[in-house]
């Protein structure tokens, strides 16, 4: 059952990601991104990370995507965004360079380093309810309290930065 869901969702996720890159119309791209984010949320659920799945839907598929769509709508794309690609000649180079990169990755994967690979540490067993809100909350406010607090300073910096860039000149 899990495997079937995984494959279906994975195919949709990859397909929507491809569509996001390939579509010319930015609104279509944004909507495909919503599909993609939803699929990834399902994948998180399959990994029993309920909190992450919820956060993904609410924050990414919800809040951030609304922002994206707003931004696209406000800055209605003119000809220059949807018109012919000014870097078209570079596409000729893209194929050979991409092929070289693929070849390099294949060679590295075949190399002795990867073939004789041994994990440094075995993955720890997941305790019951590992992905739940309670566990995440405990980790966040106990083990990871310091990063949590630093994040608030980071947000403060972002706030001041936005003010500095957007504030009208006094007087």
């Amino acid at each position: 059952m899990n495997l079937v869901v995984f494959f279906v969702v994975a195919v949709v996720a990859v397909a929507s990601a491809l569509a996001l890159v390939l579509r010319r119309n930015p609104i279509h791209g944004a909507l495909f991104l919503v599909v993609n984010l939803g699929c990834v949320a399902v994948l998180y659920l399959l990994l029993s990370a309920e909190f992450l799945a919820l956060a993904q839907v609410i924050i990414y598929a919800g809040a951030i995507m609304v922002l994206f769509v707003f931004a696209i709508m406000v800055l209605i794309p003119g000809k220059e965004e949807t018109g012919p690609d000014p870097l078209r000649p570079q596409r000729l180079l893209a194929l050979p360079l991409g092929a070289v990169l693929l070849l390099e990755i294949a060679l590295i994967l075949k190399s002795s380093v990867f073939q004789a690979a041994q994990p440094v540490a075995p993955p720890p067993a997941l305790p019951a309810g590992a992905g739940g809100i309670e566990t995440v909350g405990r980790l966040l406010l106990r083990d990871y309290l310091f990063p949590f607090e630093v994040t608030s300073v980071l947000l403060l910096a972002a706030l001041v930065g936005v003010l500095a860039l957007a504030k009208r000149k006094a007087g």
């Binding site: 990871y144 310091f146 990063p147 630093v150 994040t151 300073v153 980071l154 910096a157 972002a158 001041v160 930065g161 500095a164 860039l165």
Partner: peptide
Amino acid sequence: IVIFLALELMSLSLYVLAGF
């Protein structure tokens, strides 16, 4: 994680300062 957050705190402020 702390290195990452510190890096972001530093960079974010500098991005704004660069366009001050």
